[in-house]
């Protein structure tokens, strides 16, 4: 378990992390989500005792990192895959780290095997591809078989296969009862990886909830209905005081009606009473990126001149999302909304 209390970090005049409190539970993957420059890496460095907090404390299983004896057997971290001497071989790199915490040498070969680097163990790490470096970083984190694992943007720059591999790896680690804390600036990625979320923007806590709740609260949901008699359908729905939008024939399928803030039960019953035929009745969700921008809207550090979007609560999707996020198509289906 990781507990942060009022964690604050100033670099000169920039406040990188501002009075941040959260807890990370064992047995689950907890996502640490925030736009670029939100303070995720800084927070992770403070958890690991590399940077001194300006104020506040962070404890791992009740202790500060610096109080841990043989810390690598309790906490494993991948903050940056490039923290390796380029002229040292992968095995030498792991060997010195293992030696520092009295981890037996045979463990080096085990973790190399686990991440699939056995065949290149003797090669210099400087020649590794990004994916291989990332795997070496994960091997380093796993070396002491720790109960707490921290990963800073582990899928950055990886191909889909690598992303899938890392995602499954984290699920497995959490299933073994470990505490897994993984940062990302992509909600869509976290939706697939994390069960819980700690969301920050500009160094402040925005939300700490389950991923499910965060997405539900943040994204607009609407019911999509379609049938052979669209005119009558439209009339029936509006007569009940529901807002109805026409969706033209497009990528989402044939022309249909979109009813925000309604449930499929409600509409199904309504339409059944008047005996109308339906070809489609489904829930559509706003994209995760929209949800994320909505919630972190006021807290994106590097935004490209966009009018402030009121934060909190489900509000209309922002019209022009500038800055680091590309505006996604309206009302895309929630990726991976279920089946975790």
């Amino acid at each position: 378990m990781i507990e942060a209390q009022g964690l604050t970090k100033r670099y000169g005049r920039t406040v990188a992390v501002n009075d941040l409190s959260f807890t990370v539970q064992p047995g689950r993957v907890t996502g640490f989500l925030g736009p670029n420059g939100a303070g995720k890496s800084t927070t992770m460095r403070m958890i690991l005792g590399l940077d001194n907090p300006t104020a506040g404390t962070v404890r791992i299983n009740g202790k500060r990192y610096s109080e841990l004896h043989q810390p690598l057997s309790k906490v494993g971290a991948l903050l940056d895959a490039k923290w390796v001497h380029p002229n040292r071989s992968a095995r030498s790199h792991l060997r010195w780290i293992a030696a520092s915490n009295r981890i037996p040498v045979k463990r080096v070969d085990e973790v190399l095997e686990a991440v699939g680097l056995t065949s290149v163990a003797g090669k210099r790490a400087g020649g590794f591809s990004l994916g291989m470096s990332q795997r070496l970083g994960i091997a380093t984190a796993l070396l002491g078989d720790p109960g707490v694992l921290l990963f800073d943007e582990p899928v950055n720059g990886l191909d889909p296969e690598g992303i899938l591999w890392i995602r499954q790896f984290m699920h497995r680690l959490a299933a073994e009862g470990r505490t897994v804390f993984v940062s990302s600036h992509l909600l869509s990625e976290m939706a697939l990886t994390a069960q819980d979320l700690v969301v920050i923007g500009r160094g402040r806590l925005i939300a700490q909830t389950s991923t499910r709740e965060f997405i539900d609260a943040a994204s607009e949901s609407a019911v999509r209905v379609r049938g052979p008699e669209m005119e009558r359908l439209h009339g029936v729905l509006t007569s009940q005081g529901l807002t109805v939008r026409d969706v033209p024939d497009g990528d989402d399928g044939p022309a249909a009606l979109l009813v925000p803030n309604a449930s499929t039960d409600q509409i199904g019953e309504l339409v059944g009473k008047v005996g109308l035929v339906l070809h489609e009745l489904s829930t559509k969700r706003g994209s995760l990126e929209q949800a994320f921008i909505q919630l972190t809207g006021q807290d994106v550090e590097y935004q490209a001149g966009r009018p402030g979007v009121p934060g909190g609560g489900p509000v209309a999707p922002p019209q022009a999302a500038g800055g680091v996020f590309t505006p996604p198509p309206a009302n895309a289906t929630t990726p991976g909304g279920n089946g975790r």
Binding site: L48, G49, S66, P71, L79, D80, W83, P86
Partner: peptide, 22 residues
């Protein structure tokens, strides 16, 4: 200085958080 250059000093300090013995 190469430890600082390649940030292996950070791995060192992660392994030995009291730093001085390392």
């Amino acid at each position: 200085t190469t430890e600082y250059r390649f940030s292996t000093i950070r791995s060192t300090f992660l392994a030995v958080p009291t730093r001085t013995p390392a």
